[in-house]
Design a protein around this nucleic acid. Structure first.
Lengths: 195, 195
DNA sequence: AGCATTTTGGACCGCTCAGTACATATCTAT
DNA sequence: ATAGATATGTACTGAGCGGTCCAAAATGCT
């Protein structure tokens, strides 16, 4: 069907590998050489397919945000209550703190810290991602309020922003080496604000 | 008194300039050339005085943490209550969000995100800094509890970790471009956990 | 078979990177 | 004046950076 020489690599797979690399090492610390290796793509194919290192990052951020949001939406859909969803998401950070695998944090948080101030395009992308994340929490809060588990004296907007903020903090704390006990304490106190 | 040719630059001043540069741009994105310019030091003098780019970062992190902690301790000392100190520190983020100057975030947070996972020496330094910050909050919480403004049903350790976490989140949110209203909402809800 | 189309391999680009070597300049102490 | 000590200016290193160019290879279509 398609004309011309066929690709010798999987585009989606390569993009995901690139995403993991940026996630783990950050943008500046990831060299083109690193990318070519993990993506299993030649330099020519790289520039042909992804444009540049910067454009690749844009694609990775979009992929990351879409994947994250889709996964959370699905989890929220399956959750018993809006409140239990929020609790579960927060408490999952405890496992992350315990795991001995590399702690990469959150690509959106990492990229915000590394690039948001000096790269408008990237700033916009991570802001969009964060906004989507807040949207999921807002939906969860609304549901929780409807279900009667979350008081109505705070707006879903404010509460969801508060939750995003906690998540951002927690991801960084875990990355910085905070122990599981500390993370648990933080999660529990964070949850008391929705009581 | 001192023997040999005198320095043509101010060591403390140069170190502070370097700190600001790392604070603004991050470690990888700050080149040696950048540093030499803002520090107003020749390359020879740089290596003679500060050892290497990495060692310079170590010194900058120490300076940053010491300065921050000293400033907060002083503010706590002058505060009317432990609770009002905490409130003031959190709410100061609103001004940061409003300011149109460059939003550098917190050097400890930035460096944790950029380097903590792959640089043990730096990880230790930022962990120490964070620990000191938590210590100040812990002291404030203890004082607040003694003064009767903060309930005793949560430990000072847990509450102070919670506050550090909020600060870490807020610094990143501001850097990511969150508006003042969002920050204010987050601060207010954060404070309800100590009611 | 031959041609259009696309991908790939590899050489190459100028530039910047962090760091070094060493001669020279500037000071104090004698 | 000179010797010892410290600081600086300059030239240099090898390696790596992101990115480009183009010929060769591999496909489908006629």
């Amino acid at each position: 069907m398609t004309i011309g020489r066929p690709r010798e690599f999987d585009t989606d797979q390569a993009l995901e590998a690139a995403m993991r690399q940026f996630w783990s090492k950050g943008y500046e610390a990831t060299s083109l050489q690193n990318l070519l290796e993990v993506m299993e793509v030649s330099k020519s194919s790289f520039y042909e397919t992804f444009g540049s290192k910067h454009e690749l990052l844009e694609q990775c951020l979009t992929l990351y945000a879409n994947t994250l949001i889709a996964s959370l939406r699905e989890e929220l859909r399956q959750a018993k209550t809006g409140l239990s969803f929020i609790d579960k998401v927060l408490m999952s950070l405890i496992d992350e703190a315990t795991a001995k695998s590399e702690k990469c944090g959150c690509l959106l948080v990492n990229t915000t810290n590394e690039l948001a101030q000096r790269d408008k395009i990237i700033a916009k992308l991570v802001a969009n991602g964060t906004k989507s994340l807040q949207g999921v929490f807002e939906e969860a809060v609304r549901r929780g309020q409807k279900e009667g588990n979350i008081p109505l004296n705070k707006t879903p907007e404010a509460l969801s922003n508060y939750l995003v903020n906690s998540m951002v903090g927690l991801k960084t704390m875990v990355k910085g080496g905070a122990d599981a006990r500390t993370i648990k304490d933080i999660c529990e106190i964070t949850m008391t604000a929705l009581k």
